[in-house]
Write a protein that binds this DNA or RNA. Structure first.
Lengths: 350, 350
DNA sequence: TTGTATGCGTTATCAT
DNA sequence: ATGATAACGCATACAA
């Protein structure tokens, strides 16, 4: 349990002032190259490590950015975090993470913790239940940039990173219609969240654009979990006439729905075509493979953090109320392919 | 951009000394109850927030713990992190995370960052390539506790949190043998890592215990990725005589292997029975559903961090070189059930 | 190019 | 029960 060595120790060792040591270690231009070298050698040799806390205390910033995420154990958010961590690590920033577990309450308390931790910037994907953005005001008021991604909300000064959910949903729904579906159900999440509200809009507009009727009965709202998918399936099975297509707002839910449907003796896509969302690994495992929409988590994380860093090191540019759209596309697999589907024997057996 | 308010501001406001404010805010017993109340009211009213950095600088600890994990985008590690975050959040600790991406190099650099960040404790699951534990010595030497989980290594002073991989593998292999398999292949990862080495041992011992021969040809080493599963499948298809059972060290790999096998016209479990590892969601989606072994990620995370916290707040107990075993069990599903498998028509169609 | 002096906000020590 | 003072390690304004 040795003692930490400080710039004072190095200064004494080299007969220099602590100031010079500090400057050299921070690569200040006004330090002699040779002195700089001597100092960095000595520092390395003596096992010096900078004290973040003293430095932060002095500089009034933390080199830490905060992330509030609905849940950690989701393939999409894992990918996002992976992207964030990658960039941040290269830039020498630290990341602190907390999960809201989809509750407003927890999200508020997380925000408070982040604020008290004096993060230099905040990355947020909103919980299902979040009602307003009050809890982020302290950041805004102090000029601490906040960037929302995926589950976003409009706020002056905050940038949003998203995909075009409306368009994606429109594409998915249109695809179902082109496959011959005329009675389509949409399973989605809490409409407070843009992602679900926008997908519902895209769903509606697509029906409209193809001259199909829309009624509220065609929308099933839920938690988008495995259990929710099962429950939705049984609701769908009870509908009459039975729907011939389903557009689900995530793959987890779509997959469990398909499982339940198959168990009930239906065949996908012949009896019901299904489309999911996110392009999780699971979508390539379910049989039939799931048609879905890509949601570039890793890229979204990278972009979000880059935008945040840009604002932190603000070279003036503010980008207020701006939204950045990332590309996403429909990946067509068997679960929606009514036309090309060979009349498999499986359908008979079920 | 208002100015931060400090204990001095509160002190001035209430005509007290900063010392008393500090004590009150830290719930020091030697402060009058009523004064305490006045102070905490004033603090709340004035919007005071403690400055971690000043406090840390003074107290010489950070209330932050570090986590080094092979990859963030894995269901198992997501679950672990979820567990860790949950406990830490309750205890008022911060978590900083970095991923080694399975390389020794990156793990070393991560460790250095963590050390420079002056984490109060470190949680680690080793990368594939890690050769030694040198990079953790600085922590040990400074009395900073390090806890390994899942991918662990023996080290004086460090606690390991694991499941009994040997026993689990033994159970899995025995199950295959009981199902009538006599020519079993084991697909696993880098044997530097305990998890893979122990599973291989369990595999061997099970064969031995049932009087079956073992040869090195029965072991396929790989990255345990989706691609690795495919590759392993083609190797298996080229073997003669063809194996009738496979025990795979993770579900991702097992699933892609099954997919390839099916594509080649084989039926699982009739032609080849398969068992995976981890009980990821994907194991309940693949057809046939995958027999697998539970690996309690969330619990492992919780236990690991609790042990770490115990050592940090060291009430004397050291638990050096100790290992904590968590329960895990075999979950039997269709992919290994040769005996009960109805001769499905699917087998004929393939 | 280098050095001196000071303050960042807290907490520990030692008084009262 | 409360207060005065110093110290944690660093970075900057100012001086030389």
């Amino acid at each position: 349990m040795e003692k930490d060595i400080t710039i004072y120790d190095i200064a004494r060792e080299l007969n220099l002032s602590p100031t010079t040591i500090s400057r050299a270690l921070n690569d200040h231009p006004a330090v002699n190259k040779k002195t700089k070298q001597r100092i960095s050698d000595a520092a390395a040799q003596m096992g010096y490590r900078s004290n973040f806390f003293a430095s932060n205390l002095r500089k009034q910033h933390t080199n830490t950015i905060g992330l509030i995420v609905p849940r950690l154990d989701s393939p999409f958010h894992s990918a996002v975090i992976s992207g964030i961590e990658k960039v941040l690590n290269e830039e020498g920033y630290n990341l602190i993470i907390s999960q809201s577990l989809e509750t407003f309450q927890k999200e508020k308390s997380n925000a408070k913790t982040m604020f008290d931790s004096r993060v230099d910037g905040l990355l947020v994907s909103l919980s299902f239940e979040t009602e307003d953005l009050q809890h982020f005001e302290p950041f805004i008021n102090r000029g601490i940039p906040v960037v929302f991604y995926d589950r976003v909300a409009e706020h002056r000064n905050c940038t949003n990173i998203v995909i075009d959910n409306l368009q994606a949903a429109h594409k998915a729904t249109s695809h179902l219609i082109e496959q011959g579906c005329t009675n389509i159900v949409h399973i989605t999440g809490n409409l407070k969240r843009n992602v679900y509200a926008d997908r519902l809009k895209g769903f509606k507009y697509a029906l409209l654009d193809h001259g199909l009727p829309f009624s509220e009965d065609q929308v099933i709202l839920g938690e988008m979990t495995e259990a929710a998918g099962q429950k939705a399936a049984s609701q769908i099975l009870a509908m009459s006439p039975r729907p011939d297509g389903i557009f689900v707002s995530n793959d987890t839910c779509a997959v469990s729905c398909i499982k339940a449907l198959k168990q009930a003796g239906l065949s996908v896509p012949q009896d019901i075509a299904v489309i999911g969302f996110n392009n999780d690994a699971i979508s390539r495992v379910i049989e039939p493979n799931l048609t879905t929409i890509t949601n570039p988590g890793q890229e979204m994380g990278e972009v979000a953090v880059k935008v945040l860093l840009l604002q932190i090191n603000g070279t003036g540019e503010r980008i207020p109320g701006n939204t950045i759209n990332l590309r996403s596309e429909l990946i067509v697999r068997e679960s929606s392919l009514k036309s090309k589907a060979k009349s498999k024997k499986k359908s008979v057996l079920a």
